[in-house]
Amino acid sequence: MTEAAMDLEAEAAGVVKKFMYVNRKAPYGTIYALEGLEVVLISAAFDQDVSLAFLDDGVYQLVKGQQTKGIEVKNFSPTYRALEGYDIEKLYVERESLEARGLTADQLLVPVEVMGRDELVRRMEEQDVVIAF
């Protein structure tokens, strides 16, 4: 059993742990972003303290206006807006990654908390479990 699975089992005993999912990949070139999002949705059932971090190319997952008809791939960007209904409200975006890509928070499709690298690293270090995609 992986460490993450054991941590999920600990929830059965009523222990709430801090889980952070780290998203570092752009949405369609690889399957990581979609798979990561599905894991987050599934894990929401375990009532843990979940946060999502978007850094490096992961910030591209949240860009408004994605239209995937032409590449015949499912556009999963609207699903990020469903996270709130799953009680996943801690979305952290690294400021340096946004700036390097010429993006601003108002160009993203969900409300997020933009923070500098140092602050993001500090939050990462507070976690019980960090899972990266």
């Binding site: 949405p27 591209y60 860009v63 994605q66 239209q67 008809k69 032409g70 590449i71 960007s77």
Partner: peptide, 10 residues
């Protein structure tokens, strides 16, 4: 183009 559109980068 279709890859630009998919990513909202057109």
């Amino acid at each position: 183009g279709p890859d630009l559109e998919a990513r909202g980068m057109k």
